[in-house]
Design a protein around this nucleic acid. Structure first.
Length: 478
RNA sequence: CGGGGUGUAGCGCAGUUGGUAGCGCACGUGGUUUGGGACCAUGGGGCCGGAAGUUCGAGUCUUCUCACCCCGACCA
């Protein structure tokens, strides 16, 4: 089958070496360049454009649910970070410290924010006085720093871009509602825009955020069967409010503590896009986040009329899609490969033969299927095709995830499955962290989430055989 | 932080018993080409990761260091 032929020799095949494939794609698609700064990456224009599209769509969803953007300082004084015990214990091992300003030693060292709960709390304590001030629905787009030991582009870097939402509410019910609402915003965004199917659920206590009462997560599955935590939404209860003394006067003239949430999504999602949709020829981007949706490639562009026609087409399509024309003097074949590596959803070829017949050739990136369309109905066909690709990618990703989702009743079965066919494993759990630890030790898999959609696989815990409480998604994670 | 590996042109690599650095791709220029990574000609590019040492002489030998990659542990 011609479609299966590997056309780009410079990308390692996925099933030969998945990690190398990932690195090759990231480099060849010009998403990232390694920098001189250890553990930090340069996000190149094409990679950053994907992030901008993610930002734009997510930001609109945040605004639509009543949130406002703010900006907090990037430094946190040590004393402020220390205020919530569990939180500081969770983050202290991986924060970067600023100890000097110029030549002068600081009296109190500052950490470079690993996350901004403490700053938001400090601020909320100052601006929240009455129930009339609630809720506070804030979000910020920024970068954070975590001193990671090993790093990989997009998946784990010492500095990464993200958004962090921080909200304060009058009641526990409202905070819980917000936590779930934002989890759903993430889940819908992943499926509708990134075409990545997710499993929604709650984290076990072992896996929850430092300082949270409950952490909810969306989990996705990569091509190699590893799980990726794709977005989290935390309910803090009133724990931070007590630590930071965030109180308001309620209608009944009583002083009450606020209930808070936080939620975040990061540039890691670009890594997810690569590992969910990519293939041996490189990146495959869902049209909704693709920086370029259509690339126009003139064939035999030196011949009379070709470039003119190609430009005319580009102008026409610019009104309905993100389009570029590549009229460089590279060979057409070179251009085909180039834009395949970059995952551009649709390629439009236009040459002398097409012009004669008033047609163009459209090629889908996902299936490589070629369509010959009349220039008279170009706009309609391209619109339709982009929609179709977006839909097809989600379906394909869902089918892949489902095919890599297994169930296990015994620990032996669990171990065998995770080693032979990596993926999600659905198995029952008694709720005891000892069993979670044991599973991790024996199989290397961690609990990904307790899904909202429960199934009864067995009455017994997969590990200890005790009474099963919940069905849990397990997997090896990035 | 443990285990393994690699540092020589932008990228991928070669470099023999120590003798003063080469190949492919990429890049510049001129020309011919153009429907799946074209060809010919010609040109430019290097403190051999860094420091110290041995030597008349180090890419090569010794010591120390730094960085990166892969596999674990930890995290988004």
């Amino acid at each position: 089958m011609a479609n299966d032929k590997k056309l780009v020799e410079e990308i390692t095949s996925m099933n030969v070496d998945f990690a190398q494939w990932y690195t090759d794609v990231v480099k060849k698609a010009e998403l990232v360049e390694y920098s001189s700064v250890r553990g930090c990456m340069i996000i190149r224009p094409y990679g950053y454009a994907i992030w901008e599209n993610i930002q734009k769509d997510l930001d609109a969803r945040f605004k639509a649910t009543g949130h406002e953007n703010v900006y907090m300082p990037m430094f946190i004084p040590e004393s402020l970070l220390q205020k919530e015990k569990e939180h500081v214990e969770g983050f202290a091992p991986e924060v970067a410290w600023v100890t000097h300003g110029g030549a002068e030693k600081l009296t109190e060292k500052l950490c470079v924010r690993p996350t901004s709960e403490t700053l938001f709390c400090d601020h909320y304590a100052n601006i929240i006085h009455s129930y009339r001030d609630l809720p506070k629905l804030y979000n910020q787009w920024c970068s954070v720093v975590r001193w990671e030991k090993t790093t990989r582009p997009f998946l784990r870097t010492m500095e990464f871009l993200w958004q962090e939402g921080h909200t304060a509410h009058a009641t526990a019910e409202e905070a819980q509602e917000e936590t779930i609402k934002m989890l759903n915003v993430y889940a819908n965004f992943c499926e509708e825009v990134l075409a990545i199917p997710v499993v929604k659920g709650r984290k076990t206590d072992k896996e929850k955020f430092a300082g949270a009462k409950a952490t909810y997560t969306i989990e996705s599955l990569m091509h190699d069967g590893k799980a990726l935590q794709s977005g989290t939404s935390h309910n803090f209860g009133d724990g931070f409010a007590h630590a930071f003394d965030i109180q308001y006067t309620d209608k009944d003239n009583q002083l009450k503590y606020v209930h808070q949430t936080s939620w975040g999504m990061t540039t890691r999602m670009i890594g997810a896009l690569i590992m969910v949709h990519g293939d041996d020829s490189g990146l495959v981007l869902p049209p909704m986040v693709a920086p370029l949706q259509v690339v126009v490639i003139p064939i035999a562009q030196h011949k009379e009329g070709v470039l003119e026609k190609a430009n005319e087409i580009k102008e026409r399509l610019s009104r309905i899609a993100r389009v570029k024309i590549d009229d460089s003097d590279k060979m057409p074949g070179w251009k085909f490969s180039e834009y395949e590596m970059k995952g551009v959803p649709v390629r439009l070829e236009i040459g002398p033969k097409d012009i004669e017949k008033n047609q163009a050739v459209l090629v889908r990136r996902d299936s490589r299927e070629k369509l010959i369309v009349s220039l008279d109905e170009l706009e309609e066909k391209v619109t339709e095709l982009l929609k179709d690709i977006q839909k097809g990618l989600l379906e394909k990703a869902r089918a892949l995830r489902d095919s890599k989702t297994y169930r296990a009743v015994t620990l032996d079965e669990f171990e065998k499955t995770i080693n032979e066919t990596p993926g999600f494993i659905k198995a029952m759990w008694c709720g005891d962290q000892k069993c979670e630890d044991m599973i991790k030790e024996k199989t290397g898999a961690t609990s990904r989430c307790i899904p909202f959609e429960q199934e009864n696989i067995s009455d017994k815990c997969v590990c200890c055989g005790g009474k099963a409480e919940k069905m849990v998604f397990w997997g090896k994670a990035y």
